[in-house]
Nucleic acid binder design. Structure first.
Lengths: 157, 157
DNA sequence: CTTAATTGGTTGCAAGTGAGACTAGTTTAG
DNA sequence: CTAAACTAGTCTCACTTGCAACCAATTAAG
């Protein structure tokens, strides 16, 4: 008969680990800056790309449902952390970018999050960290999770 | 200024990967057997330990909230997949175990899930898989996620 | 041109889940 | 023995989120 040890079962471990890490990080963006995960993802996507982009694009590259992104965008607009301008070519779509205020928050938050990540991974040696990242790369690629294109606003998509 | 590439940020990657893997697996336990994740976790814990155990124990070792486990137990009882007997020593607690029916389902499901896991990890070499598991070990330990004890029903806890 | 299909984005709804109150039973302290 | 502290499990509440219907704008087909 087949045996399964839940604690050696990778899908379970990934779930548990992701939940725990999210929880640890939420201390930073949630408690300190009042952002939830979808909001943080929008901020991160806009902050990393200096270019403006659409909600659709953010949804696709963060693999988050468009309704979730839509709600996050609404909140961030209300807080003045992002700005939205109509796209002159396609009047359905909007171009999103960080506001000056949002950029300030982003620049404050990033070092904290990177420190937290570093902290979590500090139990691994440098080589182990590289290997771990490499394994994630391969698994993501094989599951087709990778965003190969970073389309610019002009991209048809 | 600090830069953060969301796609190289481990917490984000873990979240996305865990969600994707869960989704892939749910095909098996959800679609085929009508179990959701908490229900599956209860089944897996009971199936792996031949011993009976309490809801509390399942909650602790799967790191799932006790109310979530409680609901899963209720559903599984109604479906006759598990059995519950009063604990003669402590009348607050119940001993849970798989029913014959539940055991049959478990034995059918396990090979499918293991195959799916193998499939997901097949993009890694044997050595990479070992390294990956090892890295998970270390991170889990450093985050104190590891269930060091497998308490038996007599355990005070 | 006109109609149908598609796409960006929003919203209502329902299912799932964590927090925490609550009940019942147990243990510890005095 | 009694009261206080604690624990197992259930339940209600609030919140999050995925789904699907929807609206408006755009593009494709006839």
């Amino acid at each position: 008969m087949a045996e399964l040890d839940l604690f050696r079962f990778v899908p379970f471990r990934l779930n548990r680990l992701a939940a725990e890490v999210s929880h640890a990080l939420s201390e930073e963006y949630q408690t300190l800056y009042g952002l939830d995960i979808p909001e943080w993802r929008v901020m991160a996507t806009l902050g990393f790309r200096d270019d403006a982009c659409s909600a659709q694009f953010i949804a696709q590259c963060t693999r988050t449902h468009k309704s979730t992104i839509s709600r996050a965008v609404t909140t961030l607009l209300a807080r003045g952390l992002i700005e939205r301008v109509e796209n002159s070519i396609d009047r359905r779509a909007f171009e999103l970018r960080l506001s000056r205020h949002g950029k300030t928050l982003y620049d404050e938050l990033i070092p904290r999050l990177l420190a937290k990540e570093k902290d979590i991974l500090s139990c691994l040696t440098a080589q182990e960290r590289r290997d771990f990242a490499h394994a994630l790369d391969k698994i993501e690629r094989s599951l087709d999770l990778v965003q190969t294109r970073h389309p610019h606003k002009a991209d048809a998509y």
